[in-house]
Design a protein around this nucleic acid. Structure first.
Lengths: 96, 96
DNA sequence: TGCTTATATTATATCATCCTAATATGGATA
DNA sequence: TATCCATATTAGGATGATATAATATAAGCA
């Protein structure tokens, strides 16, 4: 059974999605958020990375619809919005 | 149950792996090779992409252990070596 | 209002990736 | 060996991604 050809647009979407994941800091962010939502400050401390840098990486993930966020007062909590990243993370984790 | 922290090295490996996949032409190559192995010329024609460009993209995928190749005379056949890319491709395919 | 904390944005320099064009390698065959 | 076909490599400029530093926004509180 021959698979249907995938459109160029779809491939570009997928590439953008994967590119957003393809960074050590962003993967670390995913791994933390899989355990539960976190605010920017906590992420910054957990990852030992500057706040602006974490914020930029969160922006990348948010802009691709991978993460969502919710402001609560002056604190912004990020969480995983696209469950496919969890599946992909699991595949990466189950190492040979 | 708390997941064990993933090492920085591991995260960098994963990022490299995902970065190798994160390109429309390389995803197209994967989609073709999922259907069966192919030589460079066929890939170049199927993707309507110049031979040197296809060769470069194949080199990227090969260098990350994603593809393997086998020379048969003057023809080189590429095939999927790391089955994880098939799983990831499936996750991308089963679109909402 | 002024101050502090939390987060986001912008600018910039550096480094990586991309495609194209040109060239090189390597096997087959006349 | 000369030539052809298949593939790989290299060099180039263009574009994109990155981290840092500096600055901006925005909420809470004295």
């Amino acid at each position: 059974m021959q698979a249907e050809a995938v459109s160029e647009e779809r491939l570009e979407e997928w590439a953008e999605f994967l590119k957003a994941l393809a960074h050590p800091i962003r993967l670390r962010i995913i791994s933390v958020l899989i355990e539960g939502k976190q605010c920017v400050k906590n992420l910054s401390e957990l990852l030992q990375t500057s706040q602006p840098n974490v914020s930029q990486h969160l922006g990348v993930l948010r802009s691709k619809g991978i993460l969502g966020c919710k402001r609560d007062g002056s604190i912004v909590c990020y969480y995983i919005k696209n469950e496919r990243v969890v599946e992909i993370y699991k595949i990466l984790s189950k190492e040979a």
